[in-house]
Amino acid sequence: MRAHVAAFLVAILPLIAMPGASLTLLTQRVARDGARHATPVILGTVTGLYVHATLAAAGLSALVMRSSAAFAAVRLAGAAYLIGLGIWTWRARPVAAAAGEPGRRPAYLQALLGNVLNPKAAAIFLTLVPQFLDPAAALLPQLLVLATAQAALITVWLLGWAVLIGRARRSLRSDTASTIVRRIAGAVLVGLGIRAVLA
């Protein structure tokens, strides 16, 4: 199993390294509030991985992937979420004005939904993961091991970015810089949503 896990991590690394919703949310949160605020984004992303692993074990993800209508519905829901989140991020008020807003920046939920509603994340567990499973062994424990390995790799990747962004945060403290970062993050999220629609 160790060899399978190592091979899986090598295969999954390029996918993790591709910029996505989690990295965009993390960049926005850390640039505004500091590196320690990367935690809810990471936890939300990791929770989403375990949701996909559980659904894959239950066969629900496979059902969605086999049904073009169900897959399209999940894809469009995820795209709508990313586009909505991107617009909200773009239009959000500066930090000082937003400090008292109720429900301010639910980063954990944003990251969780961004992962769970991403059909490509589900596809990983239905196309890539099976190549590293032993058909003679119990499915769920193997899925959880691979999900944990993926979660660890994503955590290291996002923590590395959090440290880098946190160190650059001093230059991003002005309202102008904060607005630029926020609007870039919003544009990226909208772009990811549009890409999901067109995929």
Rank of each mutant, 00 (worst) to 15 (best):
T89Y: 02
Q28R: 15
L153R: 13
A79E: 01
V30F: 03
A122Y: 08
A199Y: 04
A11C: 02
L198E: 05
G160W: 05
L164C: 11
A3N: 09
R91T: 10
G78H: 04
I180L: 15
P40R: 03
A123P: 04
I154R: 07
L159V: 15
A77N: 02
S178K: 02
I165L: 15
A92G: 00
T45Q: 10
L189K: 04
L113H: 06
S171W: 14
L128M: 14
L13H: 03
T176W: 08
V129R: 07
G114L: 04
L172P: 03
A38N: 05
I16L: 14
V188P: 00
L25W: 09
Y50W: 14
N115W: 05
L117Y: 11
L55I: 02
A111I: 07
W90Q: 03
P130V: 11
L25T: 13
G160N: 05
L139C: 10
H4C: 05
P14H: 07
P106T: 07
L192D: 02
K120S: 05
W88K: 13
G86W: 01
S171F: 14
I184H: 04
H4D: 12
Y50M: 09
R105V: 07
S178V: 00
T39G: 09
A6K: 10
A98I: 00
Y81G: 00
T24W: 01
R195D: 10
F71Q: 06
F8Q: 03
Q131N: 11
H52Y: 06
P40F: 01
A123F: 14
R29T: 14
M1S: 12
L60A: 12
L158I: 10
A138N: 09
A122L: 13
L198Q: 10
A137I: 10
W157S: 13
A57R: 01
D33R: 15
L49G: 02
